[in-house]
Design a protein around this nucleic acid. Structure first.
Lengths: 289, 289
DNA sequence: CGGAACCTGCGTCGATTCGTGCGTCGATTA
DNA sequence: TAATCGACGCACGAATCGACGCAGGTTCCG
């Protein structure tokens, strides 16, 4: 099935962009079918498609479209030493965030994966989370709040982040730290980031996802007797301090019981409870175990 | 009834199209009698007829004729070597299942990861899912049903399976297959298994998790125009056939709209919907794209 | 730091081009 | 003699065309 000429719509569909965008790219940047006379329909050959894919990949990395197009055009022939890594990285996370949100809007899972893995490789888990993942999640979240659309974008991005964090090499050893979400709490991405960050610091953990009933959590704590327990709460509705004291008062209490996340009250935490305010702080405290 | 070979008029009558249309199909798409020399009369064999029927069914479902013809022709390759049931002396899955459920009860994530990775390595994704993961999930699920305890075990196991499946090397290329959960459906592990199995077979996919509103899904399908869409439903409450027809009737309908999972009705599926009954069947059908 | 200019993806509109099924015609086949 | 052949053409709906404009975001500049 070597369709040697894709129609405009087919090409757009294959790339996950709108048809009009292809036309725009053509007339604005000259990035179109190699042979095309005005008025007639465009036919995208395999070569054309590979140029479009370069364009798409570069923009997914946060390169400005005009620049990406120029670069894609200069790549008439296939296979060369690859793009000059348009990432001053370390210093400027903005392109990565932009590329990530763009890939998410396009529902482009592979591109998201790529960006996320690169971010983790280059910045470490903590840097990737604070500079790239969290900002992108906030951008997409706010866009949803504002428009009430694009939920699927949000979910897909969450999933990509989850996968990227889960792919971090797990630390060996018996976990003595337990990470759990507060009752009813659905958001656990920050917890997963914490787990990944600790893993990267060589600290093994036990990560409990959402939807673990309080009693089951207490049972599990009693059974495994962790040295530290971190409870995450995103929304105030789930940040009931009673949960913390129940953990603290378990038969063989953990040395540290920590409350993390914006859902907990600012100051009124019960005695014996540690407040964790940032990823860095959390990793610093918990890697002593 | 060994109809040696149908004449052009007979074939046309049998299909309900004009004779000239058959000739057009032949010269435009190459979809004609397998043996035919120019100037002589066409004779359609049973094989030819079945190809024509594929053509007709697809066009009746709204697939563009050119595409339908290409598809019908690709099916021409009669009798693929057949799935030779790749089951060379695999190790007995029972120990793995037992080990996995035990590790889950122990909340021992590293051990679960280990078992799962080994299973995937030794049995491939399909084998690992059907022989190890699914059975273990069923065991744990039944244990929860019976005792109303150990939810956390179930969640932890689910998460470990998700991670293991997500770790399978993703296939490169632009995905033309979309996997999604039915509305309100929360269970997506089987979908993740399908995605991983396809990835292992070199087929890129777009996996939509749960909680994607139906309208958003339709938008995404319209925007990306996948060649195939698989909708998963675990519970009958979520298996409403209307969802399938809505996908089928989208502007650029996918060539294949498939219903997978036990939630869909046994027989009463709308026309043009493919029922997928097993992982193997699904991979076999979908890897042709 | 705030506002204006600019960039960019994409929806919309009326006009045009294409894909497609099928009728017609003179010649050929069965 | 009836059916079919290849070639040609037509009608109609779908897809696409170029032009334009809008909305969000970014960059620039005072």
């Amino acid at each position: 099935m070597a369709d040697e000429a894709l129609t405009a719509g087919a090409a757009a569909r294959r790339l996950g962009v709108a048809v009009t965008t292809l036309r725009t790219w053509h007339q604005r940047y000259g990035l179109g079918p190699s042979r095309h006379e005005s008025g007639h329909h465009r036919r995208y050959t395999a070569d054309d498609m590979s140029r479009l894919q370069i364009m798409q990949r570069l923009t997914a990395e946060g390169v400005a479209p005009a620049e990406a197009a120029a670069w894609a055009l200069s790549q008439a022939a296939p296979e060369q030493p690859g793009p000059p890594d348009p990432r001053p990285a370390r210093t400027d996370p903005a392109p990565a965030v932009r590329g990530l949100t763009r890939a998410a809007m396009r529902l482009d899972a592979p591109a998201m994966r790529d960006t996320l893995c690169t971010a983790i490789r280059e910045r470490g888990v903590i840097g990737a989370w604070t500079d790239v993942m969290a900002p992108a999640l906030i951008v997409v979240g706010e866009r949803y709040e504002a428009t009430r659309r694009f939920v699927e974008v949000e979910h897909l991005l969450s999933r990509a982040v989850t996968e990227a964090l889960a792919a971090v090499e797990h630390a060996a050893g018996i976990p003595r730290i337990m990470l759990a979400a507060a009752d009813e709490e659905q958001h656990t991405l920050p917890l997963e980031a914490l787990a990944a960050a600790l893993a990267q610091a060589g600290v093994p953990t036990r990560l409990f996802g959402a939807r673990v009933p309080p009693q089951a959590l207490l049972d599990a704590i009693a059974r495994t007797g962790p040295a530290a327990v971190v409870l995450w709460s995103q929304r105030p509705a789930t940040g009931l301090p009673a949960q913390l004291t129940r953990v603290r008062d378990v038969p063989h209490p953990p040395v540290v019981v920590a409350a993390a996340g914006p859902g907990w009250p600012e100051d009124d935490l019960p005695p014996g409870i540690t407040r964790l305010k940032s990823l860095t702080e959390a990793v610093g405290l918990l890697s002593d175990f």
